[in-house]
């Protein structure tokens, strides 16, 4: 089982769209896939038409030793399941502070699924916190959608610094450009000549596209309603590239 976290300190960079579309592509290839919606906004759950609600909330999720399986909801797609978000996830940091080995709690939970899934995608909330540290400890790959802007690049540097300071050497950090609008000079400039600090930058760029925004309207993965659009094809390329990195 490979755990892929879609993460960025910054919000609104396309984390959820990435997690949802890649998870769909993985399951379409027959891989048993789980997506875990860690963001209390519950956007991934919404896209999959699943109520962002867990009976008992955060406590059930974190305390559940054998019952985690009961929280899983099948999506509209075969081989793709979801652990929905809950509004109580906004307090996840507070909860984690009071448990033993607070940075390894998520890892411990996900290890239970080792034989059940080939891929687990984590749709992470923005910010850098104890939840993020849990994500870093649990994930094999940290996929970082990055908008080619100065602020985005700055948060990426912060992330790298954090990883270095916390000896997260086993974590494969893979940034890629997201929501790229080549009409904008700054985007064009950064994509064409990415800064050297973007180590491990993937070649694929995801364009800014209204088709992606329509995910909210259709409540479905992009490839199911606009399979030939530029963004859908870009997600396919991105998935191929990630698989190559894993192999």
């Amino acid at each position: 089982m490979k755990i892929i976290a879609c993460y960025n300190i910054k919000g609104g960079v396309g984390k959820t769209a990435t997690a949802v579309n890649l998870a769909y592509l993985a399951s379409r290839e027959g891989a048993r896939t789980l997506i875990m919606d860690l963001d209390p906004q519950g956007a991934a759950s919404f896209y999959f038409r699943v109520k962002p609600k867990i009976k008992g909330g955060l406590k059930t999720l974190m305390d559940s030793k054998q019952g985690l399986d009961e929280l899983i909801k099948g999506t509209d797609y075969a081989d793709l399941d979801l652990i929905p978000a809950d509004f109580s996830f906004r307090n996840m940091d507070l909860f984690l502070e009071d448990v033993k080995k607070p940075t390894r709690r998520l890892r411990k939970l996900l290890i239970n699924f080792d034989n059940d899934y080939d891929f687990v995608f984590l749709d992470c909330p923005p910010s850098i916190s104890l939840v993020s540290e849990n994500v870093f400890q649990a994930a094999d790959i940290l996929l970082v959608p990055t908008i080619p802007t100065i602020l985005s690049l700055r948060t990426y540097d912060q992330l790298l610094k954090f990883c270095k300071e916390n000896n997260l050497d086993d974590l494969l950090v893979l940034p890629f450009f997201s929501m790229v609008d080549m009409r904008k000079q700054l985007h064009r400039m950064i994509v064409e000549k990415p800064p050297k600090t973007l180590a491990g930058l993937l070649n694929t760029t995801i364009p800014y596209a209204s088709d992606v925004e329509r995910m909210g309207l259709n409540r479905a993965a992009l490839a199911t309603y606009a399979p030939k659009c530029r963004a859908a094809l870009a997600y396919e390329l991105l998935w191929d590239e990630i698989k190559e990195c894993m192999s």
Partner: peptide, 21 residues
């Protein structure tokens, strides 16, 4: 289990790409 798209005839297990199947 292990649904996979293929584009060639699979005769031996080593003809399959690395996958759960």
């Amino acid at each position: 289990f292990g649904n996979i798209s293929i584009n060639k005839k699979i005769r031996f297990v080593w003809d399959l790409p690395v996958c759960s199947l």
